[in-house]
Computed example of a mutant assay.
Amino acid sequence: MSWRVPVILQATLALIVLGLLPFMPESPRFLMAQGREEEARDFLIKYHGNGNPDSLLVAFELKQMKASINLDGIDKRCGGRWRMIQVIMISVFGQFSGNGLGYFNTVIFSNIGIKSVPQQLGYNVLNQVISATCALTAASFTDRIPRRLILPFGTLLCAVTLGINSGLSAVLDKQTK
């Protein structure tokens, strides 16, 4: 059950999202590209303009969308497919970045001496809380730190963290032999 419960919960949430999909509105950019400008405007007024049809933000966004669609026509050509491919690639390569490692937490915890299921569950919950906290903290800095600064320092921090993880793994491996 230690791996079945998380998988069942993930599948259940995915099914809920799929079930709600028909009730989700189309994006205003999609509506604009399909010639449904009034629907796009209504959407923007409701969600970005706080119900104000004279909102400057709504007018700006509509103008920007029109210009973008007229300029590149990306929603009418293969650009939309390219965006979809990018979304799929993010999902696939996200799994290669270690996200799938969580499925092996029970084995990892057993190897380091944490054998009881309640303890393993507690550590899994703690891991998710720490991950969510770090993700939300990083997301809050997204618009405050220049993107050119994030790449080298983010990469360096990831490399340092990987080095620490590798060193600790080597020490643990020597202790278990």
Rank of each mutant, 00 (worst) to 15 (best):
S91Y: 08
I88D: 08
S131N: 15
F109D: 01
Y103H: 15
T142V: 15
E61Y: 12
F30P: 03
L101Q: 06
L31S: 03
D75C: 00
Y47H: 14
N111Y: 03
V17A: 12
M32S: 04
G113L: 04
I90H: 03
A138Q: 07
V117L: 12
G79K: 00
G49M: 01
F43M: 10
G51F: 00
F93T: 13
V58Y: 00
M24E: 10
K115I: 11
D143V: 06
L18C: 15
L44Y: 01
S27G: 12
I112L: 05
S140E: 10
P146I: 06
T12W: 07
P53D: 08
S68W: 09
N70R: 07
H48K: 14
G79A: 00
S131E: 09
G19R: 02
L136C: 13
F43H: 09
L13F: 14
A40Q: 01
S55H: 03
V87W: 10
H48C: 11
V129W: 04
K46G: 04
Q10M: 15
F43K: 00
D75E: 14
D72H: 11
E39F: 05
L62C: 12
L126V: 11
L136P: 03
N52E: 04
M65Y: 02
W82R: 02
T142F: 06
G19E: 00
R36M: 13
R144Q: 04
S140N: 11
W82I: 10
I85W: 10
G73I: 00
M89Q: 09
E38D: 14
F30K: 05
L9V: 15
A135C: 08
C78S: 14
L20Q: 08
F60A: 13
N52F: 06
L101N: 09
D143E: 12
M89P: 05
M32R: 02
I145L: 09
M24W: 05
P28S: 10
R81C: 11
F109I: 11
A67S: 12
T106E: 01
L44C: 02
L15R: 01
N105P: 03
Y123M: 14
L18K: 03
P53S: 08
N111I: 06
H48P: 07
N99S: 13
K63T: 15
S68E: 15
Y123F: 14
T12F: 15
A139L: 14
W82E: 11
Y47M: 05
V117R: 10
G94V: 13
G49W: 00
R29Q: 05
L44S: 04
G79D: 00
E26K: 05
F109W: 10
